[in-house]
Write a protein that binds this DNA or RNA. Structure first.
Lengths: 253, 253
DNA sequence: ATGTCTTTGTGAACGTGTGCACAAAGATTG
DNA sequence: CAATCTTTGTGCACACGTTCACAAAGACAT
């Protein structure tokens, strides 16, 4: 996390756990799909399956929002779509700027998932003068010089950084100074921001590295070097059941 | 965990917390930067600042890998780079395929962060016959028909899905059937996979929605210096509306 | 050697998240 | 109305993650 993570005061405002907030968009997506199929109600079990989570967790998540379900029936799809949208702040329009219109920035500009959720791309900004005026996703790219003017003119509070790592902190500082208070960072660098500014990061290579870690472990289990049996997790339950039983080789937690 | 052994724990790998694994790439990035500046050693305090985490957390994270520090001095940068790389499995080459060469897939193919970490793009695959043979990032796109042949031919175990949501599950099934055991999913849909297959997802619009949630709360707190957010009261009142009650009309498509 | 200073490694306390299991709420049927 | 059935909402226990605080390890100066 960035240095200036706004630690929730956790005082008076009813505290929806961060983990729950992170799942609400997932529920919303599943509910929207049901809504499009005109499904009127859904049980926690069904919705949990569609969202890929445990049903008890889903019910607890919803309990933080209020009691929106009907026992014996389930949840009203349309109503829940509205409630979650409202909770996430998606019933209003969020102008967003994307800074850094390279391959990734252009892909983000073209990504349809933003507009369909209340996020409107207010401007595309790039430091390359040659890009200025060139339309990307139907929006003309503007030069970094006008960054402050654009932010203030459109009342932008959310900024997306898709620049090279070297430029990210500088861009971040200018965004914050101009009034941006939420930043989605795709540059592979740690951003430091003042208190009150939220930063979320997406690092593509980090995700792959985490996969590689698990992949290596899976490969190592098959080879099974010395030391204690690597498949202890699976064997833990089976150890007493049978002597040198046929424990499945592939059985991670 | 009282291992406390400064031995060479090559098999010590079992039991590294998931949260720690997710931070190792972050440390590695910071360490690589130090290495490039020829910094010989670094303290937990300094490195933690560079990685944007708490120093106690960093020390505990490293303690899961072994005792690689020297009290009174800190950590040897080069040695730690190697140890973390080895732990993450980055000392070997990971062939990766990207399926779905649209805007995002092309951006991923061009992303330099992969190659620099031991990930080699073995192939680009797309369902559009018109794309076949066209080079993207210097690599010719191949058709989906050859997916199985490509996976097996290159011994690929990590796949990246950047297709539209509708095609993702089908592509996933084929990847898994062909031998892929780790998947990075950019499609906004829940993938179901058999046991033993890891899936990590990156959903761009979910990140923005989480930011919007916090942004809305910041705005609400300013408007209402004290007491509940205004939205809470409204929700409570609407709860016991009739079953045919008028659900608010504002509904994001 | 001895003492001082720096910094690691970790026990322990605390906070957050998860999942089970079940009472209560309401629908539905006879 | 009473009985039954379904499904929510939540208390509780446990697992996981974070942070504090400090003893111990080692560097370094005298």
């Amino acid at each position: 996390m960035a240095t200036g993570r706004t630690h929730r005061p956790a005082t008076r405002s009813r505290g929806i756990p961060e983990a729950t907030v992170a799942r609400l968009p997932l529920y919303l997506r599943a509910l929207t799909a049901l809504s499009e199929r005109s499904v009127p109600t859904v049980s926690s079990e069904e919705l949990a399956a569609a969202a890929g989570v445990n049903s008890a967790k889903l019910r607890k998540d919803f309990s933080y929002l209020g009691s929106y379900g009907t026992r014996g029936v389930g949840y009203d799809v349309e109503y829940l779509v509205y409630q979650i949208s409202r909770e996430l702040g998606l019933t209003q329009d969020w102008p967003v700027v994307i800074v850094g219109i390279g391959n990734l920035g252009a892909a983000l500009a073209n990504y349809g998932g933003f507009a369909s959720r209340g996020f409107r791309i207010a401007a595309l900004i790039d430091a390359d003068p040659a890009m200025a005026g060139k339309p990307v996703a139907g929006i003309p790219v503007q030069h970094t010089d006008d960054l402050e003017k654009i932010i203030k003119g459109h009342g932008v509070s959310i900024g997306v950084i898709a620049t090279p790592a070297g430029a990210a902190q500088q861009v971040c500082d200018r965004l914050v100074a101009a009034g941006v208070t939420s930043i989605l960072n795709f540059a592979p660098t740690v951003l430091s921001v003042p208190d009150g500014v939220d930063v979320r990061k997406v690092d593509l290579s980090i995700e792959l590295q985490i996969l590689a870690f698990h992949e290596q472990r899976k490969a190592g289990e098959e080879a099974l070097p010395d030391g204690l049996p690597a498949s202890a997790a699976a064997a833990r339950e089976n150890t007493d059941k049978g002597p040198d039983g046929d424990v499945p080789a592939v059985m991670p937690a």
